[in-house]
């Protein structure tokens, strides 16, 4: 167990902001705290590294009450990335990334090796970027550095508070892909706050949907879409296109079958989602698509009727 919330309560200006919140987060999960503004999702995240205090109940980190840790030690064991990034303007990219390792007293060689490793992980050339200053970077690059900085000391947990919220859609999509890759390759436990449903569906291994300080529903993206626990969940996820969202979570691979008769006139790659395949069919006015691998070799075909019957 990485993080456990037990009967957490939080008052904000006298009113209950969080009421009796219980949540377990396992090692290696990417839990997305999702909800409208004012739902308390960001507050819940900040309670974990004690940027915000909780009034009732307790939060356990690796089985120990977070209040039993020295607060600086606790925070250095948790990566922290925020929407405004908060890079230090007077320090270079490398120096920014090295912040926590230096606080932990790593030697210079180890710090430099780690900095370069992280820049490469986030697809930034160390030669080119290590000695730049934050104002010389684009917004997307700044947030990449922010994520690298959060990962620097190899923390047990990564806390991310709407980290991609201020980015344009193209940059955001690129960073979502990068984060997903990092999660897969490092197996880090990540707690991620967003109000963007599509971002949550794409990234989460588990979504915790919050409303007015309590959990409306927690489960995998597919569970939430297929069995919304109540009206709020269905409405928040977008009742009208729940089906489309489900389609976007599934790959066409299982629906691919051998071609009988003539080969379809149009093709799609096998990594596409059901949603992409159906969208293709709609624009091309066809009911069959050929499926190819990355090199373009035809593997089989998918039929519209099969895709819609899932």
């Amino acid at each position: 167990m990485m993080i456990r919330f037990e009967h957490i309560r939080k008052l904000y200006e006298g009113a209950a902001a969080i009421t009796d919140l219980n949540l377990d987060i396992q090692q290696g999960e990417l839990v997305v705290l999702l909800g409208p503004s004012g739902s308390g999702k960001s507050t819940v995240l900040k309670m974990v590294n004690r940027m915000v205090s909780h009034e009732g109940g307790q939060i356990l980190f690796k089985g120990k009450d977070i209040n039993s840790f020295n607060v600086q030690d606790l925070r250095r064991r948790m990566g922290y990335a925020i929407q405004s990034v908060g890079l230090f303007p007077h320090r270079t990219v490398a120096h920014n990334i090295a912040t926590v390792p230096k606080l932990l007293g790593w030697d210079a060689q180890r710090v430099q090796a780690r900095t370069h490793e992280l820049l490469k992980l986030l697809a930034m050339d160390p030669e080119q970027y290590a000695s730049r200053y934050p104002h010389q970077l684009s917004g997307g690059q700044q947030q990449r550095v922010g994520v690298a900085r959060a990962l620097a000391a190899d923390p047990d947990v990564l806390l991310m508070d709407e980290p991609f919220g201020a980015l344009d859609p193209v940059t955001r999509a690129a960073l979502q892909v990068a984060l997903k890759k990092i999660h897969r390759s490092t197996g880090k436990t990540i707690l991620f706050v967003t109000h963007d449903i599509d971002e949550a569906l794409l990234l989460a291994t588990r979504i915790v949907l919050l409303n007015q300080g309590h959990i409306s529903q927690a489960g995998t993206p597919l569970e939430l879409l297929q069995q919304p626990a109540n009206d709020f969940v269905a409405d928040f996820l977008g009742r009208a296109d729940l089906g489309l969202k489900q389609l976007s979570l599934r790959s066409i691979a299982p629906y691919t079958q051998a071609i009988e008769g003539t080969e379809p006139s149009h093709t799609i790659t096998h990594t596409a989602t059901l949603r992409e395949a159906i969208s293709h069919m709609a624009t091309l006015h066809v009911s069959t698509l050929g499926v190819t691998d990355e090199s373009g070799t035809v593997l089989g075909q998918v039929l519209a009727a099969d895709l819609l019957e899932n």
Binding site: Q72, R75, Y80, S84, G86, L87, F88, H90, V100, L103
Partner: peptide, 26 residues
């Protein structure tokens, strides 16, 4: 910048480290 202070605290800087490393130079 408030976000730099926020980030520095969130990464585990003590009040003194925050002053010497972030606030004073800026």
């Amino acid at each position: 910048p408030a976000e730099a202070i926020n980030a520095a605290r969130g990464m585990g800087m003590s009040a003194g480290q925050l002053l010497w490393q972030i606030e004073l130079p800026l």
